[in-house]
Computed example of a mutant assay.
Amino acid sequence: MSVFTKQDLQPLDLVLWLLPGLGQRRLNKLTAHWGQDPKTLLEAARHLPGLTAKTRDLIEIALHDPWRLPFADRLEAHLEWQTQPGHWLLPLRSLPLLLQELPDPPWLLCLKGTPELLEGPNLAVVGSRRLSPEGRHLAFQWSHWLSWQGMNLVSGLARGVDGQAHQGALQAVTEGATGQTLAVLAHGMDYLYPREHEGLAAQICERGGALMTEYPLGSPPLAGQFPKRNRIITGLSLGTLVVEATLKSGSLVSARLAMEQGREVMAIPGSVRRQQSAGCHQLIRQGAALVTSPEEVLQELSQPLRACLESSTAEKSEANLPERLQSIYCLITDIPISLDQLLEDSGLEAAKCMQLLQELELEGCVEQLPGGWCRST
C-alpha cells in the first residue's frame, strides 16, 4: 500500500519531467537500468547518446543548481500548484505497483483529489464518444451498480461512454456508495477538455474522486496525447470494460493496451446491425470476455480482485471469530463474491457454506445480497 506524502517530491523529479530534449522514452530506459532516484538518473543521462549539446548543458546546470535553469519558473509554478489543498505531484516511486510495472510508466502524475484511489480496486470503462441510447444506459447503470460494489471507475472524461461512466459512479457516491471515479486527462491541469465537462470534473473532485494527468501545467489538449494517456487508464485498473465501440474507435487501442498489460478485457455484445457494436464483437472474437451484466464483470475480475485485496483479508484473519468461521470469513471482502465462487474457494459443501454464512451474518460480519452474492460489512 502506497503512502502518499507531498514531501516525497524532489525538485529534480520536476527537472527530469520538464527537461527539453530528454523525453519519456529515454527516461523509461534510464529508470529501467538505474532505478528511480532523480539525481542518479540525471547523472546517467549525461552519457546518453543522441542528446543535443543544449540538453547536456541543462543537465549540468540541474546537477549543480536546478534553480539556475532557464525553466526554473516552471519548477516554481508546479511547486506552488501543489501547495493548494487536494493538489498532488506524485513521482513514479510514489505510484502503485500496477503503474510502476508498466513498460512505459508515467514519470510523474499531477493529481487533483484523493490519491488513495490509485490503490483501487479500479475498473476502466471505455467506449465510443457517439453512443446509442442503449449504450448510454448501459454505461451509466453498470458504473452505478459497480460503484455500489466498491469498484472505482476509471475513464477519460471524454464525451460518450467516459462521461456516462463518471456520472453513473457519481450518482452512486451521492447515494452512499463507496466506489469512486477517476478521470485520466490528456493535457495539463490548467486545461479542461471537453469544455462541456467542466462541471463534471468539478463534481468528481468535490465528491471524493480524482483527476490526474502525466502532462505538466501549460500542456494543451493535443490529438496525439489522447491515445497515449490510455495506457494509464488501463494500467491503473484490474480490467477494462468496453461498452460500445466502432471498428475505428480509440477504445480498441485501450483494449489492446490492457491485453498487453496482462489485464482482464471485457466487452458488451450488441446488435449485428449497429456499427457501435462492431468493435466489441471483434474484441470478443480476439479473446475478450463477453459480459451481459455487471455481475459478470465482477466474476471476470474475481482472480485479480482477490490478489488486490490480499492485505485486507490478512488483517481480517485476526478478527475475534471462532476458527470454523475464520476459514470462510477470510475469503470474503467488501467486494461482493458469488456463492459459487465461495464454494470453489473454500472447498465446502453448499449446505455447510450456507450455515457458516448465516452465522457470520448473525455476527454482523457479512451481508447476503440478491442473486446469490455476499460481502463483508
Results as ranks from 00 to 15, higher is better:
9 L>Q: 10
12 L>P: 10
13 D>L: 14
15 V>S: 06
21 G>K: 03
23 G>V: 08
27 L>V: 08
28 N>S: 09
32 A>C: 05
38 P>L: 12
40 T>F: 00
42 L>F: 14
42 L>W: 02
44 A>L: 12
50 G>N: 10
54 K>H: 13
68 R>E: 15
71 F>V: 01
77 A>I: 09
82 Q>A: 15
89 L>W: 02
91 P>R: 03
96 P>H: 09
104 D>S: 09
117 L>Y: 13
127 G>Y: 11
136 R>C: 04
152 N>W: 03
154 V>R: 03
162 D>L: 02
164 Q>H: 13
164 Q>R: 04
165 A>S: 13
168 G>F: 14
182 L>G: 00
182 L>T: 08
189 M>Y: 02
192 L>V: 14
192 L>N: 04
195 R>N: 06
209 G>L: 06
212 M>K: 10
215 Y>R: 07
216 P>Q: 05
217 L>M: 11
219 S>E: 09
221 P>C: 09
229 R>N: 10
232 I>E: 03
243 V>A: 10
247 L>S: 15
253 V>H: 01
255 A>M: 10
264 E>F: 00
270 G>S: 08
275 Q>M: 01
277 S>G: 09
277 S>N: 04
289 A>I: 10
291 V>M: 03
295 E>F: 12
299 Q>L: 13
299 Q>A: 09
302 S>H: 04
304 P>C: 09
306 R>P: 00
311 S>Y: 08
312 S>I: 15
314 A>E: 15
327 S>N: 11
328 I>V: 15
338 S>P: 04
341 Q>D: 10
342 L>W: 08
343 L>Y: 03
343 L>W: 03
346 S>E: 13
353 C>T: 15
355 Q>E: 14
